[in-house]
Amino acid sequence: SEEELIEKAEKLRKEFEFIWNGIRFIIRENADEIRRFEELLKE
């Protein structure tokens, strides 16, 4: 039914948001290391 689809979509959206926030947190935490690594690659 349509309601089930909406519920599934909402659940997926929440899971995606949770994963995305996790990725963003990891990137933020490691931003300095990532930048340093990029500098090494440029040399």
Rank of each mutant, 00 (worst) to 15 (best):
S1R: 10
S1C: 14
S1P: 08
E2S: 13
E2P: 07
E2K: 11
E2L: 12
E3Q: 07
E3T: 07
E3N: 08
E3P: 05
E3C: 15
E4S: 08
E4R: 08
E4N: 08
E4K: 06
E4W: 11
L5V: 07
L5A: 07
I6Y: 07
I6A: 06
I6W: 10
E7M: 07
K8A: 09
K8I: 13
K8Y: 10
K8N: 09
A9E: 06
A9L: 14
A9Y: 12
A9G: 04
E10D: 09
E10F: 05
E10V: 08
E10I: 11
E10N: 08
E10H: 12
K11S: 08
K11A: 08
K11V: 03
L12G: 02
L12E: 03
R13M: 07
K14V: 11
E15M: 15
E15P: 08
E15C: 15
F16T: 01
F16G: 01
F16A: 01
E17R: 11
F18S: 02
F18Y: 05
F18G: 01
F18K: 06
F18V: 07
I19R: 01
I19T: 02
W20Y: 02
W20D: 00
W20K: 00
N21P: 01
N21E: 03
N21C: 14
N21F: 15
G22A: 15
G22M: 15
G22H: 13
G22F: 15
I23G: 01
I23W: 08
R24M: 07
R24W: 13
R24K: 03
F25H: 02
F25V: 02
F25K: 05
F25T: 04
F25N: 03
I26P: 00
I26Q: 01
I27A: 02
R28Q: 03
E29Y: 14
E29T: 12
N30W: 15
N30T: 12
N30S: 13
A31I: 12
E33T: 13
E33N: 12
I34W: 13
I34S: 02
I34Y: 10
R35D: 06
R35P: 02
R35L: 07
R35G: 03
R36D: 04
F37Y: 04
F37N: 01
F37H: 01
E38S: 12
E38N: 06
E38P: 05
E39Y: 09
E39I: 13
L40R: 03
L41N: 01
L41C: 14
K42R: 10
K42G: 07
K42Y: 13
K42I: 09
E43C: 14
E43I: 13
